[in-house]
Amino acid sequence: MKRDPIVLVIVAVAISAMLFFAVRRTHRKGANAPVAATGKLAPDFTLKTLDGKTVSLSDYRGKAVLVNFWATWCGPCNIEMPWLVDLHKKYAAQGFEILGVSMDDVDPKDIAKFAQDKKVDYPILIGQDAVGDAYGGIPFLPGNFYIDRSGKIVEKGFGLIGKPEIEENIQKILASSPNPQNAGN
């Protein structure tokens, strides 16, 4: 079988170009990888509550925290919220806290009314895109980050899962040690 060297050179150049773009694409994906990865310290943030108080995630160091990104217009969040209220009641005494970060673009009064209707007893914070970005972007809701007592992200997930799975994740973070030396960064 005769092989024309020119054809081979063209093929080699084409392959090199494909490899170059594939590698570049892989690198680009890596650069955009979420900042808030499991096993890493959760990015700190400071947000306002519905009643105007300022809350930082770092205020909760030593507690097991579920950062729950949600919105009033999100049906699955609406399903999940009463579960979170129940689980908060059940585990609060053990040092469990929920921070509900609302990604709504509406009047905080509407968010407050919604939270009141749902009997939410944990802090609801008015979300900002920068916080969502720090958590790798929140493309859809609900988005849950389970942070252990040392401030490390143990589990994270987007979309609705069952209440038992949420509870299992809460138990995992409650079982953690508050020693920050164990935390990665």
Partner: peptide
């Protein structure tokens, strides 16, 4: 040798492209 190199590189490139594409698709959402 060029042919062998081309064949190996072409196969690798195809797998790499498929790999990066499928990993992007596997991501939730």
């Amino acid at each position: 040798a060029s042919f062998r190199f081309s064949a190996i590189a072409l196969t690798s490139a195809i797998f790499l492209l498929i790999g990066t594409k499928s990993s992007a698709q596997e991501g939730f959402g």
